[in-house]
């Protein structure tokens, strides 16, 4: 290290931290980042890296704290804005995520992830056309990103453009077959198109790549449940409700309760029974007859 300048030596330390994050060795990465901060207490990038580690470990408050420390030292630190946007998004503070994304886009207009995050938020809010437009911008900047392409497939599925959705799904798989996120999004897309077999296939790939991801595990178990046709039929009204406004749902329930009360009760009982029976079958299929006490 003696032949290196101080700036080069610090760059090496950044890359060690980034590499440890890539290896999911967050404890060691934290130790490295803290050691760097002890030596360089005003280093904004070291704070941003520490914030990044905390996003990966889902400690969002800490991630926001360290990113703000970074931004105090350099209000235009790109990584800090990116981490901040992710921290707000992942902790479901979506308005704050949008604000942070706006700031981030100001300092780093060619970072496609901001467009991707915006698209995700608009997908959650049912603003599918806007979401699609943001994903297309993200893809303009980074055309080879499989997760973005999968999101475009999902947006098209939500907009009812099933042929385009299938086409983008194929393109996403051409770009990568080793990304659990891509497979998860493609599973949602397939489900939206009513293609339950493909949904399950995509989830199988996603869980093979990252079985430790809770969201993927839950989606996979749900996918297995939905492979039972009876459950799918009974689930159909609830899927429809999800797309309606709350007042519409309430009105339908009230109407059904008045007109077909016995039928409604039978439906609810059959639904609950099927839900638990299929859940049990899935559990037995995966874990055998062993239950946590």
């Amino acid at each position: 290290m003696s032949s290196m300048t101080n700036a080069e030596a610090i760059d090496v330390r950044y890359s060690r931290i980034s590499h440890l994050i890539g290896l999911k060795r967050y404890k060691e990465a934290t130790e490295e980042a803290e050691a760097l901060l002890r030596d360089e207490p005003e280093d904004d990038q070291a704070y941003a890296l520490l914030a990044l580690i905390h996003v990966h470990t889902e400690q969002y408050d800490a991630a926001l704290h360290w990113s703000s420390e970074s931004l105090k030292r350099d209000p235009e630190n790109r990584l800090a804005w990116l981490v901040r946007t992710n921290a707000y998004h992942d902790s479901e503070k979506l308005d704050k995520a949008l604000d942070a994304a706006t700031e981030g886009m100001r300092v780093d207009p060619y970072e496609p992830h901001y467009y991707f995050i915006r698209a995700n938020i608009y997908l959650k809010r049912g603003r599918y056309a806007e979401a699609k437009s943001y994903i297309e911008t993200a893809l303009d900047i980074r055309p080879n990103n499989a997760a973005y392409m999968a999101s475009l497939s999902y947006a098209e599925a939500l907009l009812g453009n099933h042929a385009a959705s299938r086409q983008h799904a194929r393109e996403a798989l051409n770009l990568s077959v080793e990304s659990d996120t891509t497979f998860l999004i493609l599973a949602w897309s397939a489900e939206q198109r009513g293609d339950y077999e493909e949904n399950l296939n995509m989830l199988k790939e996603a869980i093979r790549l990252d079985p430790n991801d809770k969201q993927i595990r839950e989606a996979y178990m749900e996918g297995l449940q939905k492979s039972y046709k009876m459950y799918r039929i009974l689930l159909a009204p609830f899927t429809l409700f999800k797309r309606m406004k709350p007042w519409q749902v309430l009105l339908i329930w009230l109407g059904a309760a008045i007109i077909f009360r016995p039928l409604l009760l039978i439906f609810i009982i059959v639904y609950v029974l099927t839900h638990w029976l299929t859940k049990l079958l899935v559990h037995v299929k995966l874990f055998g007859w062993s239950f946590k006490r």
């Binding site: 869980i207 093979r208 790549l209 079985p211 430790n212 595990r217 996979y220 995966l286 874990f287």
Partner: peptide, 12 residues
């Protein structure tokens, strides 16, 4: 807990 997930879901 992690190993169980890999053993159950990703262990061809």
């Amino acid at each position: 807990s992690t190993a169980k997930n890999y053993a159950t879901f990703s262990d061809a």
